[in-house]
Design a protein around this nucleic acid. Sequence first.
DNA 1: AGAGCCATTGTTTTT
DNA 2: CAATGGCTCT
Length: 730
Amino acid sequence: MEIASLIDPLNDAQRKAVTAPLENVLVLAGAGSGKTRVLTHRIAWLLKSENYSPFNILAVTFTNKAANEMRGRLESLLGFSTQNLWVGTFHGIAHRLLRIHWQEANLSENFQIMDSDDQYRTIRRIVIAMGLDEKQWSPKKIQWFINHKKDGGLRPDQIKDNGDLHQRTLVRIYQQYEEICQRSGLVDFAELMLRAHELWQTRPDILLHYQERFKHILVDEFQDTNAIQYSWITAMSKKGCLMAVGDDDQSIYGWRGAEIENMKKLEKDFAPLKIIRLEQNYRSTGNILKGANTLIANNTDRLGKNLWTDDSEGELISLYAAFNEIDEARFIVDKIREAYRENISYKDCAILYRSNAQSRVLEEALIQAGIPYRIYGGLRFFERAEIKDALCYLRLVANRDDDSAFERVINMPTRGIGDQTLSTLRNTAKEQKISLWQSANLLIQNQQLSSRALNAVQQFCDLINTIQKETRNLSLSELTEHTLRVSRLLDHYQNEKGEKGQTRVENLQELISATKQFQDESGNPEISPLSSFLATAALEAGETQSEFSSDYVQLMTLHSAKGLEFPFVFLAGLEEGLFPHQLSMEDPQKLMEERRLCYVGMTRAMKKLTITYAETRRLYGNETYHRPSRFIRELPTEVLEEVRLRTQISRPVYNAQPKNTQNNNISRIPDSSHNESGLQLGQRVNHPTFGEGIVLNYEGQGASARVQVKFGSTGAKWLVAAYAKLEPAT
DNA sequence: AGAGCCATTGTTTTT
DNA sequence: CAATGGCTCT
């Protein structure tokens, strides 16, 4: 491949980044400025032009999706596969290191990864075992506490005792949790990073090896790094070059420990640091970009950057004030239908919202309209109960001491091991400081259980042992299939009545085919196929891959939209309290993150952005009234166009509208009727010929807007709003 | 062991 | 409003 062809398609700033001299570089890459392209071309450049070996390069991303995409793009750019090149997520790379250096990291050889559900259950069990009140010591909050500490690099004994009794208990739980994980050979997500980090501290020799190996370290989405990731990457890149790519304006994960400050810290820790800004946007129209830029300018503390585009101004950003959330959904669906009639595919349309709860109404409207859609997010494959059950059997086969897995499947399907027996097991484990598996065997040996329980436990242990014995020479998928059968898990779900059982069985079959595919594709020589598969299941909980062939409207939260782009974007629910979210409104820091989230959402749109809000919305069962989001007011009026069911459009909107900020929600309701000049859903109207009726429906806008009215005399009729001479009736 | 009842609790999500 | 979870009753 020609080197010229590598850099020719780039703009100046991109080329500067790709061909940067061998020093530390921070690339401030605005939304849609070709960030992934820069990263992949940079790697190709290093290999092709600077003659580095793939062995010398490490590329870190935040999601598996991004990692896969990078590897794919790189291979198509280079034309050959890049095995020696490490590309992965922070956690994936840490896991890889720990598999290699499990001894030095003080782990058992067959340690397994626990996901946050496993972690939650383990913590809950500890809280109960410690005799604490679950209400006062909510496992969720404790989980948050522990992870937060780990993300900050702190072990229980490193947490400063501030004399706070509450904290002392939390630390005690943390301590207990650690002990159990260590004993069980379990590692949670945060622990992967923490161990990898500690490996650098305790084994400078190993660190040195990797420092010398990785001459070039590239990190994507740098604004999302947390403290531990920062110091891990810092330590490793001491002898090589770091290229950090990120956008402080798109940092939306502060709530889970990401520190935007890390981008600023680079200047100090990696001096001399070259900063390159990618400010040309190739995605959105001028108006969309102008709106987004103006919005984000309300944030302080920015690294500074202004996106521009060569593209035309494009259409204005539409704004629709819906009467309620149902009206909002119907409006969006109407617009999509309209677009579809103009030959726009459904998959080019995305509906974005702040929280998952909003999806339902939208979904219903889409169903009613017969429009295919797809919701991203929600339960992922490997998180489904039946799949977790199956995986826990496999985990036990791989590692008997896995208490978390033991607890989950010991009585699943039921085999007569109840609370009684289980608590005996737990107590013994606690007293002897051994795993549940070991305590089960101990109790069997000493005949310390009632004969019935003894029998049941014995059978369970035999089951696991037999599975292993019988499957020693079987492939991964055969092992899985066998396990599902002899554990009677498959039977159990087959007997479950209803559609639910049906899908569960299907999912289990899906799991078997997943293992088949896995063994075909991946040969990780470092570990056993089973451990390797389990790690993948935990780390890549089943990306919801969309089928490209099909044409769906895409629904997702703003968070999961990051990194994606769509020609037509609908931003729904821009209301104070919903977006920005109630819980983020007081804290200026959090409010700025909400604003960045809005910025992310707006910059997803390529051609047309439509923003909607509802004047009244059913939330948690009651009618609520929200004011339109402050983010709407922060947009420049000249890029906005208010859509209304009126014969004429636009009375310029939110410019100088003095908001009564006191909570006078109620007084806003008339606003909506005035908005429609008497044509509000459900409203009684008078028609010169048909008499009195009720507004049922409407469609279209401007001169062609039509209203459906149900008249007592003639039934429902569609009327063109402009000519119908409808008058409000009382 | 499983159905059914009451109470609680509702951001964002990847790994 | 619903989904979830614990608890009780059969």
